[in-house]
Design a protein around this nucleic acid. Sequence first.
DNA 1: CACCCGAATGTTTTCGACAACATTGGGTGG
DNA 2: CCACCCAATGTTGTCGAAAACATTCGGGTG
Lengths: 361, 361
Amino acid sequence: MSTSPVSPDAETATAGAVDSTTAPPRAPKAATIYDVAQAAGVSHQTVSRFLKGFEGIRPETREKVEQALDELGYRPNLTARSLKSGRSHRIGALTHEISQVGPGRIVEGASAAAREAGYVLDIIALDARNPRAIEESLAIITQHDLAGVLALASTDEMTHAFETTAFRVPAYVAAESDGVPDDPRTKLSSVGLPAVVAHLAELGHRRVVHIAGPHTWSASRNRMRAFESAVEAQGMHSEAILHGDWSARSGYEAIAGLAELPGATAYVAANDQMAIGAMLALKERGLRIPEDVSVVGIDDIPEAAYLDPPLTTLRNDFEAQGRAAVHQLLALIEQSEPRPVTVPPPLLVVRRSSGPVLQAG
Amino acid sequence: MSTSPVSPDAETATAGAVDSTTAPPRAPKAATIYDVAQAAGVSHQTVSRFLKGFEGIRPETREKVEQALDELGYRPNLTARSLKSGRSHRIGALTHEISQVGPGRIVEGASAAAREAGYVLDIIALDARNPRAIEESLAIITQHDLAGVLALASTDEMTHAFETTAFRVPAYVAAESDGVPDDPRTKLSSVGLPAVVAHLAELGHRRVVHIAGPHTWSASRNRMRAFESAVEAQGMHSEAILHGDWSARSGYEAIAGLAELPGATAYVAANDQMAIGAMLALKERGLRIPEDVSVVGIDDIPEAAYLDPPLTTLRNDFEAQGRAAVHQLLALIEQSEPRPVTVPPPLLVVRRSSGPVLQAG
DNA sequence: CACCCGAATGTTTTCGACAACATTGGGTGG
DNA sequence: CCACCCAATGTTGTCGAAAACATTCGGGTG
């Protein structure tokens, strides 16, 4: 049957409140190197030299400065520093859909990596509903002088925007390529999506369907290519490629919208959310998971282990991806070698949503 | 039975790659008002006045400036501006768990609201694993001169840190209060959690259990209080308050860990993730949802409608909350009236996970 | 003993925007 | 006919840090 899962628009409304203010102690001015210099009885430049770790300072002078420094609780004014030096310690990050697990984690990782390197991350969250969002965001970026710019969601528009925009600073587009490195030697390894497909092959599956993400996302295309080449390599048959938009709703609709189901025994969704939707739609068609059909996702969102049935999926380390992106950008900014970043390989997590093909079929 | 949902640690590993670099056109210097002034044949101050919308400028002068301005593609240097004016256009936002739907959406809303007001949001993502995270983040904040500081995750530590830190700028702790305004008149209204409880009461439920979040989160405490007072108001009985950490896993364990189930016919989780875990644990105990037991969540995450069964939940408008928080802060910053922010009330969304108590019971 | 050198420290300038103050040039009232 | 006023525009100083340049002082050398 096809009972729709209740349109998300329903009943009763209610009133809620938000917020509460705090008015704690407000620190007064803020010490400058001049204040410190005066307190220490030296010139501001001596203080500046001390701060930069200059060696040639007499021990007694050094001590006076040191003392004045923490007496006044001096904190460098980064704004002044940027103005003079022409470079800030801020990284701009353009991203979509922060609230999704993947992007969210990537931002977390990026934020942490940036902080560790002494930078802060300025998040520019793109509003998907606003077609001019990217344009506007780039305008903002060019003003707030940043040390570099990062694109954390690599859709085609984003990539294109980055390629055609003349930034005054290094820019980097972080893209993932799921287990299908361009290096042909690794193409058939039991890595990433190939591992998923191999897993299904072992279980006896021959006919599979892929539920892909939006074709404008490079991650989506990568996953699709990876899937198809793995299927081919295993001598399996891809019955269909359905398309969603990463959401559970789209996964549901991709299948609920079909006049009749393809004769596949396994479905591989490009992310867990779509897998969730797909599972519900399949169940509503009267199929049991995994007895009648196996479903596999990608990402291993925290809820994946607690679905019914728990979802077999490919775990991605998003945080590491975020960190990696920042390190790459920092390398460009600081003209250094891109520190060897280790993004752990995707890990196949087998749960109950995938099972052997039953002979009875 | 109690087949555990397969520990999230499993099989096969794989290698994946990340990233790809772009080296697009790099814009050269950047025009200053002096450059513009020279090009227009006027003084830089005239340019400045033009930019600030000063009226008393001769039309011909105005025109020259205007032309030079866009010929050079002038963009104000916000750094210099902040240095001089002592105030930046950046808002620092401290937050936890961005990858969760709630916090993530809040950040999106805050980011958008900030941008609309001409500010950018500097995200400081707190690492939950690092106990000194808040401290470190506050240190960062004091340096990067910000126009204001926002706490978007109101745990006790965060609130405490904000209350005891002497910021040089306005600070605001955004807290939600779910349908339990302090105003006693509205206490029993059919709002927020009271609406959830009323819904259950209508279905004939009398004995309920709450799965709360961590007690250090104010949102969690609010929800718990709201739940209990609503239950009392309906003459129902709260069988137990279980505690989780917002995760699906914790929801699962809260119930799977019980020696025997409380004799309740309905479970209300403080968020949807815990509801997901709870549903699985209940099913594994052999209970059917909603025939044997009803489960309700809070938040209405996008997947909620596609779970099995689709989850009855209370929809929160996180984006609006984020916007509201920014507006409150901006009011403090700009010493203006806190623009009346409308955070839509939580909306009860009834799906299939809640149903009438069966007489047979 | 004059001179040179370099270590240690001080003074000035610069970054870009902007504000306070200064100057120019018409027009007008006395 | 000139002092005065005001509109329009120019000049100088400020913000905090830091680089460029300058000065001081002690010691060694010819």
